[in-house]
Computed example of a mutant assay.
Amino acid sequence: MTALPTTRYVSLTTFRKSGAAVPTPVWAAPDGADLVVWTRADSGKVKRLRHTSRVTVAPCDVRGNLQGEPVDALARLLPPQEWRTAIAPLARKYGWQWRITYGAGRLVGLLRRQERRAMIRISPAS
């Protein structure tokens, strides 16, 4: 089993129903052998994950330029009751930047009275 990248940004590639790959640079924090990612619930990557859990991840820069080889993995959307344990690694890795970003997203969700966030757990493919 190949380890998942633990760089500041990773390129998360999800797949459309047609099979076309869609890479997106994201923050991802290691949580054991897995990675956790936080994103908007209405994002394209969340919609594509509802179709297929197959993804690839690769180290990249903030613009998504790959800095290593992609690794095959499986992703799943976490139910809200699992968020607390998934948030901790992100808070540790990104510190004050995480707190500001997460806090702003949470405030907007409260004001609009709807959940706008999603947590994703990425595991190495067997």
Results as ranks from 00 to 15, higher is better:
22 V>G: 08
32 G>K: 08
34 D>P: 02
106 R>Y: 11
62 V>F: 04
34 D>V: 03
84 R>V: 12
74 L>W: 03
16 R>E: 14
95 G>N: 04
31 D>Y: 01
50 R>C: 02
87 I>P: 00
2 T>V: 15
7 T>M: 11
11 S>I: 06
117 R>T: 15
23 P>S: 04
102 Y>W: 13
114 Q>T: 14
1 M>D: 11
95 G>H: 04
88 A>M: 12
95 G>I: 03
49 L>D: 04
78 L>Y: 09
78 L>R: 13
64 G>D: 05
60 C>A: 05
41 A>R: 07
90 L>W: 02
98 W>C: 04
126 S>I: 11
19 G>R: 07
92 R>Y: 01
71 V>W: 05
101 T>F: 10
86 A>F: 10
38 W>G: 06
115 E>F: 09
63 R>H: 06
58 A>V: 02
35 L>F: 03
39 T>G: 00
104 A>C: 07
76 R>V: 11
116 R>W: 03
29 A>D: 03
64 G>Y: 09
93 K>M: 05
75 A>P: 03
75 A>W: 04
89 P>H: 06
75 A>N: 05
89 P>M: 04
120 I>W: 03
56 T>S: 13
92 R>A: 13
59 P>V: 08
83 W>K: 01
5 P>H: 12
85 T>N: 09
6 T>F: 07
30 P>Y: 08
105 G>Y: 14
54 R>W: 06
68 G>I: 04
88 A>K: 13
56 T>R: 14
41 A>K: 10
7 T>L: 05
